[in-house]
Amino acid sequence: MKTFAFLFLLSTFLLTGCATKNDLSTFYAHRPKSIVVVPVVNESPQVTASSVFLTTITRPLVERGYYVFPVYLTDMVLRDFGLTEAGHIHQLPPSKFNEVFGADAVLFITIKDWSTKYMVLVSTVTVEMEYVLKDTKTGEILWQHTQPYVYTSNGGGNPIVALVSAAMTALLVDYLPLARAANVEAFKEPFGLPAGQYHPDFEKDKDRF
């Protein structure tokens, strides 16, 4: 009896262990081929974050094997429909994006953090995004993930020089490689997106996610 109780405990451990991975059953049931990335909601105080981020999203997602609608053209077409506010766009029923673009899935991204913290000797740059992929026919969530990425630079010698150079580069230069790296990280195993049809691992990587 005791052995049974022990096995029971052990199995719940194992099961919960699996549950910490993303549940991809809905994803596999729908198997999206094409993804439209709509304008991102920016919860950080940095106004340039959205446009800097959008330049980095296409490549890593395409490299996972998906057809990704061109982000700029997507933005322009939505504007044509009077949809200029990312917050509003994220509230629309996902079926709208099937109607307009014929996309299988829509990716809603929210920038949670996009900041630089200056200290005397080091500055820390942080980006964090929340990704939610929804099926455009049923509105169901196919996949979601939150991805932070942190970079700490050691200013070295003169603290004032370090401060100034960090401040000068923080606006444009520092965030791009971080956003890129965060996207690559977000889509890869074990928490990312299984390979799409253009990837050689398509339908061969189920055990890795």
Partner: peptide, 18 residues
Amino acid sequence: DSLFYWGKYEDSLIERYI
């Protein structure tokens, strides 16, 4: 490394957006 040829794709978006 890559399934596609990317050239200056990201730069093309930076020119447009930024």
